[in-house]
Write a protein that binds this DNA or RNA. Structure first.
Length: 318
DNA sequence: CTCCAGGGATGAT
DNA sequence: ATCATCCATGGA
């Protein structure tokens, strides 16, 4: 068993793994078990240290100068978090999120794993994405054991491409099965090279990702942020949209996706992806459904939101 | 532009 | 135990 300990003073492992950017780590024995590439890893934080262990080293590990390099790289311990946070805009909403999310990092995920997982994430909530990820791994991945925990690697594009839509549907993918299968076949055949497109500009990379079945604007931004280190990428889902609308557009009457996109790019800037992740995590953990408090009191029909949404019919004011 | 399938966990009644 | 809600892509 290989064990390492890394000084990580400005890092929060639990927040990082529970912030909706990665979906397969599970709590075990005071820490978390999961995989990094095809290695089973146990990770635990105590004091200002990150401890990690794995059974065997592999090629990927050696390329990262051992387990320490692999773990440091995956958890992005080299990101200058203080500088990143200092670059955020100063406003009450951002400040609250910044305080709440201290130590949360945007990790570096394997490209195919990230792309495939976010194709599965469409119209799903975090708990459900975790289920899908687990089923895909159990069915198509490779078994590993770590500290008496069973974990599975994420299946390669080739493995998924060799499967059928029916098999994927059995992993609770629903209509996403078709998209995942089609994209896996493009990756497996070499029609798209996920490593090569890493050299494209932000705009070109976004456009290229969107050509893949099941990849819309939001999923493309997630993949750019979590697998391609494009820290400006700003995925807008319903949570973020709600935060933006309430914090920065409370009196705006017409607001469409284009205006929101222009605003986030200008306002959050270079590390917009980090800002987005902090706003998202803060809202998701502390936000709670407004129906809990408002529901009957406000006379809202069945807890339906008061404010209009970009996705609600009737909200698009040209 | 508008409308809605899709599907399983989760929360409300 | 039933019923409504949550979600973002893609196609009609």
């Amino acid at each position: 068993m290989e064990r390492i300990q890394i000084a990580a003073p400005d890092f929060d492992l639990a927040k990082t793994l529970d912030s909706g950017q990665v979906f397969h780590w599970e709590q075990a024995g005071g820490g978390f078990v999961g995989t990094i590439g095809d290695l089973a890893i146990y990770a635990e934080q105590s004091g200002g240290f990150l401890k990690a262990s794995c059974r065997t080293l592999n090629l990927e590990c050696k390329m990262h100068s051992g387990l320490e390099g692999l773990v440091s790289s995956y958890f992005a311990l080299d990101h200058p978090l203080a500088e990143i946070c200092a670059s955020f805009p100063n406003d009450p909403t951002m400040d609250a999120a910044k305080t709440f999310c201290r130590g949360l990092r945007i990790i570096r995920q394997p490209k195919w794993e990230c792309l495939a997982t976010f194709i599965c994430s469409s119209m799903k909530q975090v708990a459900h994405i975790r289920q899908i990820s687990r089923k895909l791994r159990e069915r198509f991945g490779e078994f590993r054991e770590i500290n008496d925990n069973r974990v599975y690697t994420f299946p390669s594009a080739e493995t998924i491409a060799a499967g059928s839509e029916k098999e994927l549907r059995e992993c609770a993918l629903g209509y996403r099965a078709k998209n995942l299968l089609a994209t896996s076949r493009q990756v497996a055949s070499g029609k798209i090279d996920l490593e090569q497109i890493g050299s494209l500009s932000d705009a070109a990379l976004h456009a290229r990702l969107r050509e893949l079945p099941g990849v819309g604007a939001k999923v493309a931004n997630c993949v750019m942020l979590f697998a391609y280190e494009r820290l400006r990428a700003f995925p807008i889902d319903v949570w973020i949209e709600r935060v933006l609308r309430e914090a920065y557009f409370s009196r705006a009457r017409k607001l469409n996706a284009g205006r929101l996109k222009a605003f986030t790019e200008r306002y959050f800037g270079e590390h917009g992806g980090y800002a987005q992740q902090y706003l998202f995590h803060h809202a998701r953990i502390t936000g709670r459904r407004r129906s809990e408090k408002a529901g009957a009191a406000r006379g809202v029909q069945n807890g339906r939101r008061c404010g209009v949404s970009l996705h609600d019919k009737g909200s698009r004011v040209k």
